[in-house]
Design a protein around this nucleic acid. Sequence first.
DNA 1: GAATAATATTTCGACATCAAACTATTTGAC
DNA 2: GTCAAATAGTTTGATGTCGAAATATTATTC
Lengths: 155, 155
Amino acid sequence: MPTHFSGTRAEMRTLDTFIKLTRCTNSLLARLAERNTVGDLTYSQFAVLEALYHLGHMTQGEISTKVLKSGSNMTTVIDNLERDGFVLRERDVEDRRVIHIHLTAAGTGKVEAVLPGHVAALLDEFSVLSAGEQQALGELCKKLGKGKQSNKIKG
Amino acid sequence: MPTHFSGTRAEMRTLDTFIKLTRCTNSLLARLAERNTVGDLTYSQFAVLEALYHLGHMTQGEISTKVLKSGSNMTTVIDNLERDGFVLRERDVEDRRVIHIHLTAAGTGKVEAVLPGHVAALLDEFSVLSAGEQQALGELCKKLGKGKQSNKIKG
DNA sequence: GAATAATATTTCGACATCAAACTATTTGAC
DNA sequence: GTCAAATAGTTTGATGTCGAAATATTATTC
């Protein structure tokens, strides 16, 4: 029993599921961190580099949407990536509010050095679930993650 | 397709599941934050208060184990809770290294003021899944969260 | 064409988070 | 009994994270 909350059966069930979900994600990320799958990068840094690697150069706004983080946060993460030589900022010449972020050769090399090990670690962690179970987990997460459409459509 | 990674079928499936899992947890927590379910508390503060509320007073070490956070982090979070009058530190008289954390009346009141709304919001968010689906999700998360036992048992 | 609104990013202040180094205390080894 | 190792918590330094306010620029409205 992960919780000691007392409520209706539906409340107990939902609380229990919620705790299992957040603990699962927490533990999984902690184990990956322990394995050091992304080298000396942080996960946020890796997520940004990986997005640029697979999708090509993007604006900061596009990146922050892609990795589900706030714009102000993206400024910080990209500051650090730029300092370490993995990305470059390029001011758009037509719309000077916009900044394009490019992977440098070092950045590309970093992703390619780190990605295989990261994938291998994930494969290993997920090997406790069968292909069918992974599929099922993915579907349930997709449904829950999307949320009630009524939350998004106004009126 | 949440990812553009190219690999074996198993790699694609696992990457896809991983991304759905982390995005699901991310989005869910973001939506809960948007609903402001824990008032002016942070989630870490709420987690600590809720643990104390349901389990009684604990040492800082016990709390950090309970909420899966580092000890140094727990010092910070409890500093802020103490500053706001929700908890008290009490030095153990027998083992003076140990500090017991107690909920104050204000802390108890805070939990009781916030918990019903938090539970209601969770119920609403999870209503996109049937009882059976929630059960299934919980089981899969439990399995994945626990990880390979070989990762824990040495030798 | 000047005032206004919208957009992209940065800055600031607060909190979270960790690892490593540190302090204080207790336990264990001899 | 004293010194070493282990334990509980704190401090420090780095990063992440957000929201709100600020800045710079572009688009819109009249």
